[in-house]
Amino acid sequence: MRRKIVAGNWKMHKNAEETEDFLNELIAALPDDIEAEVIVAPPFVNLASAADHVEFTPITVAAQNMHQAESGAFTGEISAAMLKSIGVNTVILGHSERRAYFNETDAALANKVDTALKHDMTVIFCFGEELKDRQNGQHFNVVENQLRDGLFHIDDKDWAQIVLAYEPVWAIGTGETATPDQAQEMHEFIRNTLRSRYPQVAEDVSILYGGSVKPDNAREIFSKPDVDGGLIGGAALKVADFVAIAEAI
């Protein structure tokens, strides 16, 4: 059975005090019978304290990025071993903002995936088309290429540690959202693309939708058969909204 997941990507938001306050509120607000796995991804400087804070709760802490090298002269970067040493075992890779603003290529992301898997980390792998790709009818090709170039070198067994996150770039932080039918159409395409290369594991891989998910649209989006949860941006910064989205699964 596929995992149902709601992950909150905080991006460059929340200082140490705000992180602690948010996690206290979240722990208190999450129902005991919540069905979704709940993940939060604070900025690097708050990862250690966040991981300590949620240690005995059902909440998981993820990093927003990591470097592919084990160590070295990479000023400002963080390695997989560093994350593991503070109890962080999940990492988001390939977010559209990393691709756009920091020039992360599919080849670099493939190396990051390899490093994360080597360290037995769970990877939330992000991908998706820009508006011009959809307008030009290239959205399926773009998504297929990102999947193939970033992930199709790994073995069947490695997919147990991969969570996919489809994020149409035109719907991130814009207020625009793919319709539930558009989300399902792409998620079905993604699963069929997986079947073509990994028929033994395709049904078990969770595919999250990311792109302006809110409490008022989450339930309809999550109801689609190939949508297994969400990678949430802005709405993940408010406890009430984030909990409402998690309860929508």
Results as ranks from 00 to 15, higher is better:
residue 110 A to H: 09
residue 15 N to H: 12
residue 247 E to N: 11
residue 183 A to I: 02
residue 34 I to R: 06
residue 204 D to E: 14
residue 124 I to C: 06
residue 23 L to V: 13
residue 48 A to T: 13
residue 190 I to R: 02
residue 44 F to H: 13
residue 221 I to D: 01
residue 16 A to F: 14
residue 104 E to M: 06
residue 42 P to S: 02
residue 160 A to C: 08
residue 247 E to F: 02
residue 132 K to V: 13
residue 150 G to H: 02
residue 14 K to A: 13
residue 123 V to H: 03
residue 238 K to T: 09
residue 75 T to R: 05
residue 168 P to Q: 02
residue 38 V to W: 03
residue 14 K to N: 13
residue 48 A to H: 14
residue 127 F to H: 04
residue 100 A to C: 12
residue 174 T to M: 08
residue 80 A to M: 06
residue 237 L to T: 05
residue 212 S to A: 02
residue 107 A to V: 11
residue 6 V to N: 01
residue 114 D to V: 03
residue 19 T to F: 01
residue 222 F to E: 01
residue 147 L to Y: 09
residue 106 D to T: 03
residue 199 P to A: 03
residue 145 N to S: 12
residue 170 W to A: 04
residue 222 F to I: 03
residue 225 P to E: 07
residue 188 E to T: 15
residue 103 N to S: 14
residue 228 D to A: 08
residue 113 V to S: 03
residue 166 Y to W: 05
residue 132 K to S: 15
residue 196 S to L: 13
residue 158 D to Q: 13
residue 239 V to F: 10
residue 32 D to S: 15
residue 66 M to Y: 09
residue 59 I to T: 11
residue 143 V to W: 03
residue 169 V to W: 05
residue 169 V to R: 00
residue 136 N to S: 15
residue 62 A to H: 06
residue 16 A to I: 14
residue 210 G to M: 04
residue 248 A to S: 15
residue 112 K to D: 07
residue 25 E to T: 15
residue 172 I to Y: 09
residue 241 D to K: 01
residue 122 T to W: 03
residue 134 R to A: 09
residue 235 A to R: 00
residue 218 A to C: 01
residue 211 G to W: 00
residue 202 A to R: 04
residue 196 S to N: 15
residue 68 Q to H: 14
residue 212 S to C: 01
residue 5 I to K: 01
residue 129 E to N: 11
residue 67 H to S: 11
residue 47 L to Q: 09
residue 89 N to M: 12
residue 139 H to V: 01
residue 62 A to I: 07
residue 77 E to S: 10
residue 213 V to L: 01
residue 1 M to P: 08
residue 220 E to K: 09
residue 87 G to K: 02
residue 238 K to V: 07
residue 209 Y to M: 03
